[in-house]
């Protein structure tokens, strides 16, 4: 099994280290050819506008869309969630547009509003998860086919799944807790990808 981490900008090394720690082969993806033969792709946190501009520059948008439609598991964290969303507010931007959710960029406010909190995630064994939110997006709408995996105490959805796609508003890669990565790797190992050539 091999997992790719989109390595245009942001904390991609932390995701690569997480996957390595779990004993799975991984590759930093900067071009479409590096998407070939993957069993799953992680889109990291970072500045969403920067990564999006670079994705357009390097012709990565269409290949990733195609792989997602062929069933490849993709997990996006924070900026990665913004890239996966079909609709993005503040400002409106053209993303990969794969998940039926609407997200508002910097929905919790500026950096001084960034926060940490322990949250229960029902799909995970072993108690609550320490979630770090940094200028995080807020999910404002969840489509009928989207499953909510976790919510804040005020009921805002912060982790969602739609078939082969998972999006998190926070950063498990900044903690030492590997459970969400293990969850994603389990999805990747059991997924049926029709064709993993971009």
């Amino acid at each position: 099994m091999k997992i790719g981490v989109l390595a245009l900008q942001g904390d991609f090394r932390e995701h690569l280290a997480m996957v390595s720690r779990l004993g799975v082969d991984n590759i930093a993806v900067r071009s479409a050819s590096e998407l070939e033969g993957l069993n799953g792709l992680i889109i990291p946190g970072g500045e969403s506008t920067t990564a999006l501009i670079l994705m357009h520059n390097f012709g990565l948008i269409e290949p990733i869309r195609k792989l997602a439609k062929n069933g490849m598991p993709i997990m996006g964290t924070c900026a990665g969630m913004i890239h996966l969303a079909k609709e993005v507010l503040s400002p409106n931007m053209e993303t990969l547009g794969l998940m039926d959710i609407t997200v508002r960029r910097n929905g919790f406010g500026r950096q001084i509003d960034s926060f940490e909190i322990d949250i229960p995630i029902t799909i995970l064994p072993g108690g609550s998860f320490h979630a770090i939110f940094i200028r995080a997006p807020v999910i404002e709408r969840v489509g009928p086919a989207v499953e909510v995996l976790a919510r804040l105490p005020d009921d805002k959805a912060i982790a969602v799944k739609e078939e082969n796609l998972v999006a998190l508003a926070f950063h498990p890669e900044l903690t030492l807790d590997t459970r969400l990565h293990e969850y994603f790797l389990a999805m990747a190992s059991s997924s049926k990808i029709i064709e993993n050539k971009p």
Partner: peptide, 15 residues
């Protein structure tokens, strides 16, 4: 927190 302060710097990496 130290986590959100250093975390924002992590998000700027490669930029």
């Amino acid at each position: 927190t130290w986590g959100v302060k250093t975390g924002l710097a992590q998000m700027l990496k490669g930029g």
